[in-house]
Amino acid sequence: MAEKCATIAFDADDTLWENEQFFRMTQARFGELLADFTDPDHLAERLLAAERRNLGHYGFGIKGFVLSMIETAIEVTEERVPAAVIGELIAAGQEMLRHPIHLLDGVEETIPALAEEFEILLVTKGDLLDQERKLAQSGLGELFDGVEVVSDKTATVYSSIFERHNVTPDRAMMVGNSMKSDVLPPIAAGAWGVYIPHNFTWEIEQAKAPDAHPRYRQLSSLRDLPALIASVFV
């Protein structure tokens, strides 16, 4: 088989399948459960602060989110949160971990087509077991030449991934919905960064776009990716 001319790496959550909307649904329920103790806006601010504070302890994913909700509930109620509320938060997290996969528009057609012509990788953050579950349920698992579940996405992490897969960065492209994780670090590592916005993006994953950078592109849909790849890797 001839060597494939380029490597295309993909984020998973909110790039290939829905994810953030389930966090927001659970957070709305969190607000309802604690409505007698604080208003939703203040609660959201406290939860976001807890999530930022806890990233170094729990990493990214549902389990850390649930623990941050519990911590926030204890704080805003001055340790008076009912045990039943804690139980509901745990149950909500378990429900999130069981939620079926909903592929985003264009994924089912685009990923198999690209896999025929390019080396494709999955580079995602989050809990290993949960990401493995979602990849298995997606039906896409066998299409990827490599799967990397990482604790964070930095330029150093991307450089290590490219080296491990014998990828030359200028022949690599990372595609995702997070400017902070999927675009800026791969560009810093010498690769292309392609931003495909999602309706919902976690505040922690937002950053300013490098509009003037020659290796940055933005698309409105994954369906537009093959044409972009053809124009870049000639």
Rank of each mutant, 00 (worst) to 15 (best):
E3V: 12
D13S: 07
E20Q: 14
F22H: 15
M25Q: 06
M25G: 05
E32R: 13
L34H: 03
L34K: 05
D39I: 06
D39L: 12
L43S: 03
L47N: 04
E51N: 04
R52V: 11
Y58S: 05
Y58H: 12
G64T: 10
F65W: 10
V66M: 08
S68V: 01
M69E: 09
E71G: 02
E71L: 08
A73I: 00
T77R: 08
E78L: 15
V81N: 00
E88Y: 03
L89H: 03
I90A: 09
I90F: 00
E95S: 07
E95L: 12
I101E: 00
H102S: 14
H102M: 13
D105I: 03
G106A: 14
E108I: 04
T110L: 11
A113F: 11
F118S: 02
F118M: 10
V123F: 00
E132M: 09
R133K: 14
R133A: 09
S138P: 01
D145A: 12
V150K: 04
V150A: 06
A155N: 05
I161F: 07
E163R: 07
R164K: 15
H165D: 00
K180Y: 10
P185A: 12
A189D: 03
G190L: 09
A191S: 07
G193F: 02
Y195E: 07
Y195K: 05
T201H: 02
T201M: 11
I204G: 03
H213T: 07
R215T: 04
Y216R: 05
Y216N: 08
R223Q: 10
D224Q: 15
L225G: 03
L228A: 13
I229W: 01
S231L: 04
F233E: 00
